[in-house]
Simulated assay, not measured.
Amino acid sequence: MQIPPLPDGHTHDGPAPRTAGLEEVRRLLAGRGVAVLSGAGLSTESGIPDYRGATGSRRRQPPMTYQDFVGSEESRRRYWARSHAGWRTIARAEPNAGHRAVEELRRSGHVTAVITQNVDGLHRAAGTPDAVELHGGLDRVICLGCGRTSPREDLDVRLSALNGAARDTGAHVNPDGDVELPDALVENFRIAPCAACGGILKPDVVFFGESVPKPRVERCFDLVDAARALLVLGSSLTVMSGLRFVRRAARNGTPVAIVNQGATRGDAFATATVSLPLGATLTALAEHLGAAPTTR
């Protein structure tokens, strides 16, 4: 199959190019029964920045931890002020060619499971309703008091009514939708309680310092164990929440292929590594395998 072009400034020349594994990725997909593990790099073409890699966006401040969020109203005010300012970036994002190709491969039976580390909901938006969102989803809010979940859009309306145009002042959007804001805007931001019980609202995502629910982790292990191969897309595998599935597959003797722009922490476990743009690469793979296009 034809190799898609690399980003500007890159070539296929030089020692040990990371495009040599592309045929192995195609072979694994052709055998069907592949589980996909996707990371932030799959969503960069949708306008959502990544923390690492060629399109990475480094934070100027550390991310909110679960302990900080539940520990003080000041921390919750800071989180919601910055998250509210960046929410429209996430809400406006649409699935890109990579998400659509994954769904095409799933519908054609080449991919049998999708696990994502992303919280942007773009796999669901592309038509993959059973994608396991390892770290939850930003489009949902949960009350820490009564456990009620509600749409993020409902909270967005309430926060806009309380704070006016505060969302438009941020310049630097982080990959989780949070925006760098002046201290004065954070201090004056008004947060909204749960509409049902008045409790503390939290995005339905796993914060730093918080554990992924055990049943969700076990579900992902089951999917990896049942797969003939594991295909990692757009993840540096820096954090253990994703790397553990690569290690599990390797321990089971399951082939692991990685498509990511740049080296990853899981490369030593991989039978194939590819450094190419995800949208074009996955689209070419789907077309080569005869996967039927999804409805756009």
Score class of each variant (00 low, 15 high):
residue 58 R to V: 13
residue 233 L to T: 01
residue 125 A to H: 13
residue 208 F to I: 02
residue 86 G to T: 02
residue 91 A to L: 13
residue 55 T to S: 13
residue 12 H to P: 01
residue 37 L to Q: 07
residue 177 G to K: 00
residue 138 L to M: 05
residue 111 V to G: 00
residue 242 G to A: 05
residue 143 C to D: 14
residue 131 A to E: 01
residue 290 G to N: 12
residue 1 M to G: 06
residue 5 P to K: 13
residue 128 T to R: 00
residue 206 V to R: 00
residue 158 R to H: 11
residue 165 A to Q: 11
residue 148 R to W: 10
residue 227 A to C: 09
residue 100 R to M: 06
residue 64 M to G: 01
residue 175 P to H: 04
residue 118 N to Y: 11
residue 112 T to C: 02
residue 24 E to D: 11
residue 4 P to S: 07
residue 171 A to M: 09
residue 117 Q to Y: 01
residue 22 L to H: 06
residue 235 S to T: 14
residue 217 V to T: 15
residue 20 A to G: 09
residue 45 E to V: 11
residue 61 Q to P: 00
residue 192 A to T: 09
residue 231 L to M: 11
residue 88 R to S: 14
residue 53 G to I: 04
residue 230 L to D: 10
residue 204 D to Y: 01
residue 149 T to K: 04
residue 243 L to W: 09
residue 70 V to E: 12
residue 190 R to I: 09
residue 46 S to M: 04
residue 277 P to I: 10
residue 176 D to R: 02
residue 243 L to Q: 06
residue 154 D to V: 09
residue 136 G to T: 05
residue 18 R to I: 02
residue 205 V to L: 03
residue 223 L to R: 14
residue 3 I to V: 14
residue 22 L to R: 03
residue 199 G to R: 03
residue 199 G to L: 08
residue 199 G to N: 06
residue 217 V to N: 01
residue 79 Y to F: 15
residue 51 Y to L: 07
residue 187 E to S: 15
residue 194 C to Y: 14
residue 95 P to V: 07
residue 37 L to T: 08
residue 117 Q to T: 01
residue 270 A to F: 11
residue 170 G to W: 15
residue 110 H to Q: 08
residue 221 F to N: 08
residue 227 A to H: 04
residue 77 R to G: 11
residue 274 V to S: 10
residue 117 Q to A: 01
residue 280 A to V: 10
residue 216 R to Y: 01
residue 160 S to Y: 13
residue 65 T to C: 06
residue 152 R to W: 07
residue 258 I to F: 09
residue 164 G to H: 08
residue 55 T to M: 08
residue 186 V to P: 04
residue 81 A to M: 04
residue 238 T to G: 15
residue 29 L to K: 07
residue 209 G to L: 09
residue 273 T to S: 10
residue 123 H to P: 08
residue 201 L to M: 14
residue 277 P to V: 10
residue 102 V to Y: 01
residue 120 D to Y: 05
residue 242 G to W: 00
residue 295 T to A: 15
residue 135 H to R: 09
residue 227 A to Q: 03
residue 93 A to C: 13
residue 220 C to Y: 05
residue 152 R to E: 07
residue 105 L to N: 05
residue 168 D to Y: 12
residue 291 A to L: 07
residue 287 E to F: 03
residue 55 T to D: 11
residue 234 G to N: 12
residue 43 S to Q: 09
residue 65 T to N: 07
